[in-house]
Design a protein around this nucleic acid. Structure first.
Lengths: 103, 103
DNA sequence: ATAATGGTTCGATGGTTGTAGAACAATCAA
DNA sequence: TTGATTGTTCTACAACCATCGAACCATTAT
Protein backbone atom coordinates (compact mmCIF):
# COMPACT_ATOMS: atom_id res chain seq x y z
CA UNK A 1 0.00 0.00 0.00
CA UNK A 2 1.38 3.38 -1.01
CA UNK A 3 2.07 5.97 1.67
CA UNK A 4 -0.19 8.50 -0.04
CA UNK A 5 -3.08 6.08 0.23
CA UNK A 6 -2.41 5.56 3.89
CA UNK A 7 -2.50 9.30 4.44
CA UNK A 8 -5.87 9.49 2.69
CA UNK A 9 -7.16 6.65 4.82
CA UNK A 10 -5.95 8.11 8.10
CA UNK A 11 -7.33 11.49 7.10
CA UNK A 12 -10.69 9.95 6.31
CA UNK A 13 -10.85 8.28 9.72
CA UNK A 14 -9.56 11.27 11.64
CA UNK A 15 -12.84 13.15 11.65
CA UNK A 16 -15.21 12.21 14.43
CA UNK A 17 -18.25 12.29 12.20
CA UNK A 18 -16.61 10.24 9.49
CA UNK A 19 -15.42 7.69 11.99
CA UNK A 20 -18.99 7.50 13.30
CA UNK A 21 -20.30 6.86 9.83
CA UNK A 22 -17.64 4.28 9.14
CA UNK A 23 -18.29 2.42 12.39
CA UNK A 24 -22.03 2.46 11.77
CA UNK A 25 -21.52 1.03 8.31
CA UNK A 26 -19.18 -1.58 9.70
CA UNK A 27 -21.67 -2.69 12.31
CA UNK A 28 -24.65 -2.63 9.99
CA UNK A 29 -22.73 -4.79 7.60
CA UNK A 30 -21.70 -7.24 10.29
CA UNK A 31 -25.20 -7.55 11.69
CA UNK A 32 -26.86 -7.78 8.28
CA UNK A 33 -24.61 -10.75 7.53
CA UNK A 34 -26.00 -12.75 10.38
CA UNK A 35 -29.63 -11.67 10.04
CA UNK A 36 -32.12 -12.93 7.53
CA UNK A 37 -30.56 -11.49 4.42
CA UNK A 38 -30.81 -14.54 2.24
CA UNK A 39 -32.41 -12.60 -0.58
CA UNK A 40 -29.61 -10.13 -0.83
CA UNK A 41 -26.12 -11.03 -1.89
CA UNK A 42 -23.21 -9.65 0.08
CA UNK A 43 -21.94 -7.88 -3.01
CA UNK A 44 -24.95 -5.60 -3.15
CA UNK A 45 -24.05 -4.09 0.19
CA UNK A 46 -26.18 -2.36 2.75
CA UNK A 47 -29.29 -0.70 1.46
CA UNK A 48 -30.18 2.94 2.05
CA UNK A 49 -27.16 3.59 4.21
CA UNK A 50 -27.14 7.27 3.28
CA UNK A 51 -30.71 7.70 4.48
CA UNK A 52 -29.99 5.71 7.62
CA UNK A 53 -26.93 7.80 8.32
CA UNK A 54 -28.93 11.00 7.86
CA UNK A 55 -31.40 9.78 10.47
CA UNK A 56 -28.73 8.93 13.02
CA UNK A 57 -26.59 11.99 12.67
CA UNK A 58 -27.33 15.61 13.27
CA UNK A 59 -25.77 16.85 10.05
CA UNK A 60 -27.09 18.22 6.80
CA UNK A 61 -27.46 15.97 3.76
CA UNK A 62 -24.75 17.83 1.93
CA UNK A 63 -22.29 17.30 4.74
CA UNK A 64 -23.07 13.61 4.98
CA UNK A 65 -22.78 13.26 1.22
CA UNK A 66 -19.38 14.90 1.45
CA UNK A 67 -18.26 12.48 4.17
CA UNK A 68 -19.40 9.43 2.23
CA UNK A 69 -17.37 10.63 -0.72
CA UNK A 70 -14.28 11.04 1.45
CA UNK A 71 -14.63 7.51 2.79
CA UNK A 72 -15.18 6.19 -0.70
CA UNK A 73 -12.27 8.17 -2.09
CA UNK A 74 -10.03 6.67 0.56
CA UNK A 75 -11.10 3.22 -0.53
CA UNK A 76 -12.68 2.45 2.83
CA UNK A 77 -16.15 1.87 1.39
CA UNK A 78 -17.67 1.21 -2.01
CA UNK A 79 -21.01 2.68 -3.01
CA UNK A 80 -23.11 1.47 -5.90
CA UNK A 81 -26.19 3.27 -7.10
CA UNK A 82 -29.44 1.42 -6.90
CA UNK A 83 -32.30 3.50 -8.23
CA UNK A 84 -32.87 6.55 -6.13
CA UNK A 85 -30.55 5.59 -3.34
CA UNK A 86 -27.37 3.60 -3.16
CA UNK A 87 -25.98 0.55 -1.47
CA UNK A 88 -22.70 0.60 0.24
CA UNK A 89 -20.20 -1.85 1.60
CA UNK A 90 -17.12 -1.65 3.77
CA UNK A 91 -13.96 -2.74 1.96
CA UNK A 92 -12.47 -5.39 4.16
CA UNK A 93 -9.39 -5.63 1.95
CA UNK A 94 -8.58 -2.01 2.78
CA UNK A 95 -8.97 -2.67 6.48
CA UNK A 96 -6.60 -5.58 6.08
CA UNK A 97 -4.10 -3.37 4.24
CA UNK A 98 -4.09 -0.87 7.07
CA UNK A 99 -3.42 -3.69 9.50
CA UNK A 100 -0.55 -4.87 7.35
CA UNK A 101 0.85 -1.37 7.04
CA UNK A 102 1.05 -1.36 10.84
CA UNK A 103 3.36 -4.38 10.57
CA UNK B 1 -9.52 1.71 23.12
CA UNK B 2 -11.79 4.76 23.28
CA UNK B 3 -13.06 6.28 20.09
CA UNK B 4 -11.62 9.67 21.01
CA UNK B 5 -8.17 8.13 21.25
CA UNK B 6 -8.55 6.51 17.87
CA UNK B 7 -9.46 9.89 16.38
CA UNK B 8 -6.33 11.42 17.90
CA UNK B 9 -4.23 8.60 16.52
CA UNK B 10 -5.69 8.78 13.03
CA UNK B 11 -5.30 12.55 13.08
CA UNK B 12 -1.68 12.22 14.11
CA UNK B 13 -0.96 9.85 11.25
CA UNK B 14 -2.95 11.79 8.68
CA UNK B 15 -0.29 14.42 8.09
CA UNK B 16 2.34 13.50 5.56
CA UNK B 17 5.18 14.95 7.59
CA UNK B 18 4.05 13.29 10.78
CA UNK B 19 3.69 9.96 9.04
CA UNK B 20 7.23 10.44 7.71
CA UNK B 21 8.54 11.06 11.18
CA UNK B 22 6.65 8.13 12.59
CA UNK B 23 7.91 5.77 9.90
CA UNK B 24 11.47 6.98 10.36
CA UNK B 25 11.24 6.37 14.09
CA UNK B 26 9.76 2.97 13.49
CA UNK B 27 12.55 1.96 11.15
CA UNK B 28 15.32 3.41 13.29
CA UNK B 29 13.96 1.50 16.21
CA UNK B 30 13.74 -1.75 14.25
CA UNK B 31 17.24 -1.44 12.85
CA UNK B 32 18.77 -0.35 16.13
CA UNK B 33 17.43 -3.53 17.67
CA UNK B 34 19.41 -5.72 15.32
CA UNK B 35 22.58 -3.63 15.23
CA UNK B 36 25.26 -3.51 17.86
CA UNK B 37 23.27 -1.87 20.59
CA UNK B 38 24.26 -4.13 23.41
CA UNK B 39 25.20 -1.20 25.60
CA UNK B 40 21.84 0.44 25.34
CA UNK B 41 18.68 -1.07 26.73
CA UNK B 42 15.55 -1.04 24.62
CA UNK B 43 13.75 1.02 27.20
CA UNK B 44 16.05 3.98 26.68
CA UNK B 45 14.82 4.35 23.14
CA UNK B 46 16.46 5.92 20.15
CA UNK B 47 18.93 8.64 20.89
CA UNK B 48 18.82 12.12 19.38
CA UNK B 49 15.84 11.34 17.23
CA UNK B 50 14.77 14.99 17.18
CA UNK B 51 18.13 16.09 15.82
CA UNK B 52 18.13 13.24 13.32
CA UNK B 53 14.63 14.14 12.20
CA UNK B 54 15.65 17.78 11.78
CA UNK B 55 18.48 16.67 9.49
CA UNK B 56 16.24 14.49 7.31
CA UNK B 57 13.31 16.82 6.93
CA UNK B 58 13.06 20.23 5.39
CA UNK B 59 11.11 21.78 8.23
CA UNK B 60 11.91 24.23 11.00
CA UNK B 61 12.75 22.99 14.49
CA UNK B 62 9.57 24.45 15.86
CA UNK B 63 7.44 22.59 13.36
CA UNK B 64 9.21 19.32 14.04
CA UNK B 65 8.86 19.85 17.77
CA UNK B 66 5.15 20.38 17.24
CA UNK B 67 4.83 17.15 15.27
CA UNK B 68 6.70 15.15 17.88
CA UNK B 69 4.29 16.45 20.48
CA UNK B 70 1.32 15.43 18.41
CA UNK B 71 2.65 11.91 18.00
CA UNK B 72 3.40 11.72 21.70
CA UNK B 73 0.01 13.12 22.64
CA UNK B 74 -1.64 10.45 20.53
CA UNK B 75 0.29 7.81 22.42
CA UNK B 76 2.14 6.67 19.33
CA UNK B 77 5.58 7.44 20.74
CA UNK B 78 7.09 8.10 24.14
CA UNK B 79 9.84 10.64 24.63
CA UNK B 80 12.06 10.77 27.68
CA UNK B 81 14.45 13.61 28.34
CA UNK B 82 18.09 12.75 28.53
CA UNK B 83 20.18 15.83 29.25
CA UNK B 84 19.95 18.30 26.45
CA UNK B 85 18.20 16.05 23.99
CA UNK B 86 15.68 13.26 24.37
CA UNK B 87 15.27 9.63 23.53
CA UNK B 88 12.18 8.35 21.95
CA UNK B 89 10.51 5.05 21.34
CA UNK B 90 7.56 3.84 19.30
CA UNK B 91 4.74 2.43 21.42
CA UNK B 92 4.11 -0.99 20.01
CA UNK B 93 1.13 -1.48 22.30
CA UNK B 94 -0.60 1.45 20.64
CA UNK B 95 0.07 0.01 17.20
CA UNK B 96 -1.44 -3.23 18.41
CA UNK B 97 -4.49 -1.40 19.73
CA UNK B 98 -5.08 0.21 16.36
CA UNK B 99 -4.87 -3.21 14.74
CA UNK B 100 -7.40 -4.52 17.23
CA UNK B 101 -9.70 -1.57 16.69
CA UNK B 102 -9.77 -2.57 13.03
CA UNK B 103 -11.19 -5.95 14.12
C1' DA C 1 30.35 33.56 34.05
C1' DT C 2 29.73 33.15 29.22
C1' DA C 3 28.81 30.92 25.10
C1' DA C 4 27.03 27.16 22.43
C1' DT C 5 23.73 23.49 21.74
C1' DG C 6 19.15 21.27 21.75
C1' DG C 7 14.37 21.99 22.15
C1' DT C 8 10.10 24.72 23.42
C1' DT C 9 6.70 28.26 23.23
C1' DC C 10 4.39 32.16 21.12
C1' DG C 11 2.24 34.94 17.57
C1' DA C 12 1.19 35.47 12.89
C1' DT C 13 -0.22 33.75 8.47
C1' DG C 14 -1.81 31.17 4.58
C1' DG C 15 -4.04 27.05 3.43
C1' DT C 16 -7.27 23.30 4.35
C1' DT C 17 -11.47 21.33 6.05
C1' DG C 18 -16.23 20.77 8.12
C1' DT C 19 -20.44 22.59 7.77
C1' DA C 20 -24.88 24.57 6.08
C1' DG C 21 -28.23 26.09 2.68
C1' DA C 22 -29.87 26.70 -1.89
C1' DA C 23 -30.28 25.16 -6.35
C1' DC C 24 -30.01 21.23 -8.96
C1' DA C 25 -30.51 16.36 -11.09
C1' DA C 26 -32.39 11.79 -11.13
C1' DT C 27 -35.65 8.51 -9.95
C1' DC C 28 -40.12 6.96 -8.34
C1' DA C 29 -45.24 7.41 -7.28
C1' DA C 30 -49.77 9.56 -8.19
C1' DT D 1 -47.34 15.44 -16.00
C1' DT D 2 -46.80 16.67 -11.53
C1' DG D 3 -44.99 16.12 -7.11
C1' DA D 4 -42.26 13.70 -3.72
C1' DT D 5 -37.99 11.43 -2.50
C1' DT D 6 -32.84 10.82 -2.68
C1' DG D 7 -28.83 12.44 -3.18
C1' DT D 8 -25.22 15.96 -5.51
C1' DT D 9 -22.93 20.22 -6.44
C1' DC D 10 -21.89 24.98 -5.56
C1' DT D 11 -20.89 28.86 -2.72
C1' DA D 12 -19.70 30.80 1.46
C1' DC D 13 -17.91 30.99 5.97
C1' DA D 14 -15.88 29.83 10.33
C1' DA D 15 -12.73 26.84 12.56
C1' DC D 16 -8.74 24.40 12.43
C1' DC D 17 -3.94 23.27 11.17
C1' DA D 18 0.89 23.39 9.28
C1' DT D 19 4.39 26.27 9.11
C1' DC D 20 7.83 29.82 10.22
C1' DG D 21 10.77 33.04 12.85
C1' DA D 22 11.83 35.04 17.08
C1' DA D 23 12.31 34.89 21.72
C1' DC D 24 12.98 31.84 25.15
C1' DC D 25 14.61 28.03 28.59
C1' DA D 26 17.71 24.25 30.03
C1' DT D 27 21.80 21.87 29.71
C1' DT D 28 26.55 21.34 28.61
C1' DA D 29 31.21 23.13 27.31
C1' DT D 30 34.77 26.68 27.76
Amino acid sequence: MMKDNMIKIFKALSSEQRLNIYMMLYEWQMSSNTEDSSFRSFEEGMEKCFTKACCCMDLSKSTISHHFKELENAGLITCTRNGQSFNCKVNMETVEEIRNFLK
